[in-house]
Write a protein that binds this DNA or RNA. Sequence first.
RNA 1: CGGGGUAUAGCGCAGCCCGGUAGCGCGCGUCGUUCGGGACGACGAGGUCGUGGGUUCAAAUCCCGCUACCCCGACCA
Length: 490
Amino acid sequence: MAKVLTSREENYAQWYNDLVLKSGLAENSAVRGCMVIKPYGYAIWEKMRDELDRMFKATGHENAYFPLFIPKSFFSREANHVEGFAKECAVVTHYRLKTDEESGEIIVDPDAKLEEELIVRPTSETIIWNTYKNWVQSYRDLPILINQWANVVRWEMRTRLFLRTTEFLWQEGHTAHATRQEAEDETTQMVNIYADFAERFLGIPVLVGSKTESEKFAGAVETLTIEALMQDGKALQAGTSHFLGQNFAKAFDVQFTNREGKLDHVWATSWGMTTRMIGALIMAHSDNNGLVLPPRVAPIQVVIVPIYRGNDELPPIAEVANKMKDELTALGISVKFDDRDTQKPGWKFAEYELKGVPVRIAIGPRDIKNGTVELARRDTLEKKVMPQEGISNYIKELLEEIQENIYQKALNFRDKSTHEVDSWDELVDVLENKGGFALAYWDGTLESEDRIKETKASIRCLLKDAEPKEGRCVVSGKPSKQRVVIAKAY
RNA sequence: CGGGGUAUAGCGCAGCCCGGUAGCGCGCGUCGUUCGGGACGACGAGGUCGUGGGUUCAAAUCCCGCUACCCCGACCA
């Protein structure tokens, strides 16, 4: 087979980049740091979006849309929040272009300067809270459970396709509650939805936990996160859910009259998941032959490739293929019958492997004679000849099996790559040589955390369900109640 | 913004040191043979050598400026 991908072993970052480009998911655009998401990549995003949207709606959320632009002054309201984003936002200063008399070039019209600059949203808390202010008077107006599908812009210094782009697509949920408890429950509920989505749908096992003080979202009281492990042993923050306390309500003056007739500020949450998940999907499962897509996110779940010589051989094959396609479609499976005569079978095999299609069926003259098909699964690269009879139900079950197998494989890898460490040397050994998650006692101080950061790794999270156990901090040797998860991260 | 690198056909590159008017692979088009793992042959199309200036009889090649992109750091979903 012609080599189109750099291998993972040779250069992991290059492998990832090659894969995104060659499989047709996305490419770099004319604008620095921004990508073009191509149809195949966007189809994956649509699958993810539809499933998340379904989960959000099942838990009582509604979609709405807020503006792309946010008045600069809004960012002055919440001091902690602005600290986190102020340095990396795109700012709109003018509203008109004109043709320069001398050069004939298009220039920004200096007379068209905005009185107040507009910020291209890096996230929408400020404009949404400014709006919620008018929506809430009484506890009867609560809760507000809103999600928005949108694009946001963060002027990152270094970008990578899907993992970190200047503009990216995401959903951001913003909820308002009458009580602290209710908002905290919402925060937990949403991080659990993310974890469930990642594991059940994307086949990516995740750790659920809370961020340290220094790693949490600017403006949040607590940030819950799901952390995934990539095949190169680095962690990827895959979704976050923030308990915002009353910070934004106070900054934007969102008060309501509670059941006792007293004025109070509302309690808030926000939570988001982005197109970065496509990057996670790629790095968690794919191999040197290309993408490996879990069936539930695969835009094409089954591809049928005819093998024929001359135009006489095609019609009987097409007949079997189309019948099979109809049966599979009736079972809710997405099927492509690729009868293009512009590409050869071998070319198509390689192409669909690169694109990560979970199941491939090949039908040739031999199969027509024998009533069989050749069936290949992408996750294991196994091929076998099967009878046509009953193939549809077999494939339906096989897709489930592939979904499960991909998840188990990732889970085994994570378990194998998770190490308990009890000293600084052990920690460094894991971070430098082994990769993966290190579970270590930490004394909870910023000093110790900074020391850990000097290794280029960070505390990914404090595990949600960890039972308290006594130990000594690997940095300071001071007493510690719980192990934390440390890893190098994207 | 600091350090390093690159810019030549749609893509990947050679040519530059030592100046003489551009080449290879892939891809693309036509025709034929092929088609159960990225086929083969023949013919063909395609380049103001990033950009502005300078040196020279002559610049992809030497000199100066500019711009863009990539990699490594600080930032980050």
